[in-house]
Design a binder for these strands. Sequence first.
DNA 1: CCTTGAACCTACAGCTACTGTAGGTGTTAG
DNA 2: CTAACACCTACAGTAGCTGTAGGTTCAAGG
Lengths: 151, 151
Amino acid sequence: MATRLTIGRAAEAAGCKVQTIRYYEQIGLLRRPPRSEGNQRLFAHEDVRRLAFIRHARALGFPLQAIRDLLSLGDEPDQSCEAVDAIARAQLGDVEERIEYLQALRRELKRMIEQCRGGRIADCRVIEVLSDHAPGEMFDRTVLRSGVGSP
Amino acid sequence: MATRLTIGRAAEAAGCKVQTIRYYEQIGLLRRPPRSEGNQRLFAHEDVRRLAFIRHARALGFPLQAIRDLLSLGDEPDQSCEAVDAIARAQLGDVEERIEYLQALRRELKRMIEQCRGGRIADCRVIEVLSDHAPGEMFDRTVLRSGVGSP
DNA sequence: CCTTGAACCTACAGCTACTGTAGGTGTTAG
DNA sequence: CTAACACCTACAGTAGCTGTAGGTTCAAGG
């Protein structure tokens, strides 16, 4: 028993890169696993589950800080799950805000593109709009910070 | 004539931070403006227009490389605006992809949150879903790279 | 003329969440 | 035994800025 995986296997199991695991360890999101005699990390099943949790949460767009909070809440199974819900709702709110922001961008971009009927750059509406059109308040906010994904 | 603005005024006029202007200069997006005797940058109206162009394009989510391309295209007013259009359409495509991705996230998050009916963390669906649910292929792609906005 | 405070200067560190590289060591199959 | 591959550390780089430290310059008031 007590099958332990090297970092490559763990990465495969959790669907992430080897370096990502080392990174999570470095920032304290994963514990430092025991090492083999030759100094190689050996991950227990529990570590891999934690890693998978992190990856799933990341895939849903949760920032690492939120995941940190979720993980520590997960360690207190008898507490109310109110705080967990709050984090998830915050994430949902964030996603919805980004969607609205991007939809506004899409409208603007479409309008701009549709107005361009080809021809010379001097007459191009795209360039013109970018040169002259003051973007509305809408675009001044920092709604869309960053995304998610594993390149 | 030839009113020239200090960096603070230019930033105000273009709606960005002073450091942002210096950054754009550093990466070669803005020319290095002439300096006063006391070594302070003096921006011409033309520089401010270029800066505003950049800010508008950023507000629409164009990455700096695309803006670089747009700017150099803008310097050739007799060329066809096909390339300009292509950049704008690429940006639109990118925005649309992000929207779809975020809408998928939203569905997942909503589902997860709705299933949670309060109670103890041990029974929390949110934690459970994150622990056990393997995210579909959909979330493995790098669709949403980064956003836009001026914090 | 002198001072004060704001605005400017350079250079560099920091943010998110990784990813990639260099240069070296461990492990395993043939 | 050796080749190939996985692993190790440490650090640099990505995008697009933002913030800080430590020092000048400038304009206005006394």
